[in-house]
Amino acid sequence: MNWRKVRIFVFTLLALCLIPATRYYQIDEPLLKLLRGSNHIDPLSLHLSGEFVENNLGTEQDADGSVTVRMIAQQYLFVPHCILVPAGVPVHLKITSADAVHSLTLNGTNYAVKTLPGTVSLAELQFPRTGDYKTVCREFCGAGHYAMRSEFKVVPRDQFPALRAGERGACVLQ
């Protein structure tokens, strides 16, 4: 047996295994979802049907006191532009993209949610403190990328309005 060839083969194999083993955290979750075929959504017809139609965007009050936020990222805006959420309750974020890859990053927190067309990105957020959290897109998405910013307005729990079923909250554009 040619041990030299075996050694080269084994070390090459190990080197190739090291790449995913050390970089697994960089593999995008939405990309995996897209490859698995689950969670698929047509980015061209978000406005026609499904949970991302205009009047379903914004904050929805869930029965257990938590809230669900639905957003669309597109060149070069997050819609709705300003999100109103209560402090101290779980926020289930659902975001999808209508065109390119975007990344919703909340300043002052560790939250960064990458979204790409064709999948819905899910994230669990919670804001212990009230205040305005500026958001930016941290994935280069085109000519107006640097101006793609929006805001999460976190208000005390008792000041967050009680939304009935079918109602969606959003703060007024300043």
Binding site: L44, H47, R164, G166, C171
Partner: peptide, 27 residues
């Protein structure tokens, strides 16, 4: 429209159908 927490809240009624801005898709 109602006022709460110093912000205006857009409120859709329960029975609101999907609001569709345009039937065009860029297929």
């Amino acid at each position: 429209v109602m006022v709460a927490a110093g912000s205006l809240i857009l409120v859709a009624s329960d029975a609101a159908p999907d609001r569709i801005p345009s039937f065009v898709t860029w297929s």
